[in-house]
Amino acid sequence: MRGLSEQLRNTAKELLREKKVDFVIGYAPGSVNVKTTPYFAFTPEEAENLVWNPLCANILVTYLLDYRYDDVKVAVAVKGCDARAINRLIHDRQLKRDKVVVIGLPCRGILDADKIAAKIDPRATITDFEYAGDNIVVKTDKGDVSLNRKEYLLNKCLVCEDHNPIVADIVIGEPVQGIAAEDNFAEVKQLEALSPAERDAYWEKQFNRCIRCYACRNICPACNCKECCFDQAEPQWLGKANNSAENHVFHLTRAMHVAGRCIDCGECDRICPMDIPLRKLNKKILKDMKELFGIDTPGKKTEDDNPIGSYRLDDPDEFNY
């Protein structure tokens, strides 16, 4: 995959050299060898630090919100799932399409850093990745490690529906195919099979662990309100105490606020320090909305079709508020 990183760097350098963008948001090697970190390149020299590989987990589109009121043009690297966030921001009127250059990254799945950490010598330098059938070979200066993708990819990548970005101005490399997608809603169905009391106990346990760091909200491209209701002092919608009641209010309110808008990037779930399976919560709502309204996964279409956030004159229901 080194060639693709090279191609990405060249693309970024060209965009910066020709002043087509003010800066490029991509990935650089992280502080541990199994992670990358978001990286902002302002000069062609800085673009030299960019990489693209199966450790590039973070969604970068959310950063565009930091610049939404600025007069800047930004290039951003997006994987298939992240590309839906571009449409999300456009639908939510938080981004003008001509203010962003989308660098599309066809993606065969991202490795779960927590899982592979046990397999890769922490002192090793990862030099490249190669695909061999169901496996991915992590090449390092201390030897190669072959990993079964089904075992070591992020869960979300096993049910990926957009390996290739649906929005892109420039595409790095050729379109790819991932491994055969499993049932997208298998985990939701497991939860649905529980009794209400069991489900309640399940979420009670999960939410009790929440420390309310708001990482889930802050990384979420659908959480793009200028001021979040949870930050408002007057009126104060959510108490600051960490307890079951307030934590439920936080998570359930957030889930409803992103209902029909959540692009299912799974970032909330991946980055939660307390491993709360937030994606299951959002996926349950997505599943219901697909069944009730026949919607696509939000962000998939260029036009906004969110049944909760839109109103049509021919709507059979009254507009109640």
Binding site: T37, P38, T62, I211, R212, C213, Y214, I219, P273
Partner: peptide, 15 residues
């Protein structure tokens, strides 16, 4: 430069 990638969450401070 450092702050650009910060999400402004409280994860670091709470852990």
């Amino acid at each position: 430069r450092l702050a650009r990638k910060c999400l402004g969450c409280a994860c670091c401070t709470y852990v």
